[in-house]
Simulated scan of single mutants.
Amino acid sequence: MAEALAGVRAEHRFDEAALLRWMENHVTGFDGPLAVEQFSGGQSNPTYRLRTTERDYVLRRKPPGILLKGAHAVDREYRVISALHATGFPVPRPFGLCLDESVIGTIFYVMEMVEGRNFWDTAFPEVSREERPAYFDAMNATIARLHAIDPSAIGLGDFGRPGNYFERQVGRWSRQYLEDADAGRVPAMDALIEWLPANIPPGDDVSIVHGDFRCDNMLFHPTEPRVIAVLDWELSTLGHPLADFAYHLMIYRMPPGFSTGLAGLDLPARNIPSEEHYIADYCRRTNRDGIERLDFHLAFSLFRLGAIIHGIKGRMIRGTASSPNAAAAVEQLERIAELALAQTRG
């Protein structure tokens, strides 16, 4: 269940002595020596485990190489987890942000290494049938709790531009897709770029959104069905909470083995809550009567995922992809785009 660790990949190596000096000067309580390993995940930002004799840390950095403007915003990650940690929301404790690229070659931040269970399969095959609903409930409660936090009250009132969220996001991801000529074009993505702007539903709620809320971006308590840390905040911003929830809800529309999807599985046999039940729980927790235009929210979320993977394809072609699993993700691009387009047909 834990994410694999290995030696630092050649393209992501850096001056470990320089990092040690920075840690000694900027991380309260730090005491070397320091050993560096790299996590196998991190499609976007290389992620490392920093081992010392007393405690371990995690380092997240921008990848080296030519990057798209606005991508790999580890400084934004650091800002949001710092604000959320102060509220008691389950995120790792932040220890320091380095904006000086001369230290290891890119900007980076250091946070607490949280010891917990990481699940890659949303069907939770590793836990008992009886416990499974509690894990879904923990995810549901955590995203609802995030959406209930007042951004202005925790210093994040300017963390994104409020208003016209879907218009801006469709434009952002469309531009990123269209500008990445290296990755080529996908007919279903082109069709979605036409459909989405013409079908934006009314309403403009604003909350902190995670942007990639999936079970593999969470750590659960070692023995309890409880989320103890939400990870990977690179895509977080101020946005529409239903966009965030619909992205999380995509698991019910994706087939097994397809980004850990649940579609087609016998959910009652596995004691997994239905999509309708899961939506109802979220709406109860967030005081909603329901979710209108779910077709749009799911189409947008899948389109956005397609644009993210399209970006991974471009980075893979340019040699800057952070994860050895990039090729497997890219293989799913056309299927994800087709699934997104299918949502528009009801």
Rank of each mutant, 00 (worst) to 15 (best):
M111N: 10
D158Q: 11
A18Y: 00
L302Y: 09
P273F: 08
L339A: 15
R214M: 05
A4N: 09
I309Y: 10
V103A: 13
E16L: 06
A326R: 11
W233Y: 12
A141H: 07
C98G: 06
D205E: 15
A18W: 02
E167V: 05
L99C: 12
D75L: 11
R335F: 10
V8N: 10
L50T: 06
G306P: 03
A280D: 14
L5R: 06
G239S: 06
R21H: 14
A198K: 15
R345F: 12
P202T: 08
G261L: 05
D180M: 15
G171D: 03
V103C: 14
A4L: 01
R13S: 13
E11F: 10
S323M: 12
W195H: 03
P33G: 11
Y165M: 00
W120M: 14
W195P: 00
D121W: 07
A181E: 15
R9M: 14
F213H: 04
S44N: 12
V58S: 02
F296Q: 02
L59Q: 10
E126G: 07
A83F: 02
R315E: 02
I309S: 03
P33V: 09
L267Q: 00
Q43R: 13
D204P: 07
P256T: 04
A73S: 13
E112C: 09
V170L: 11
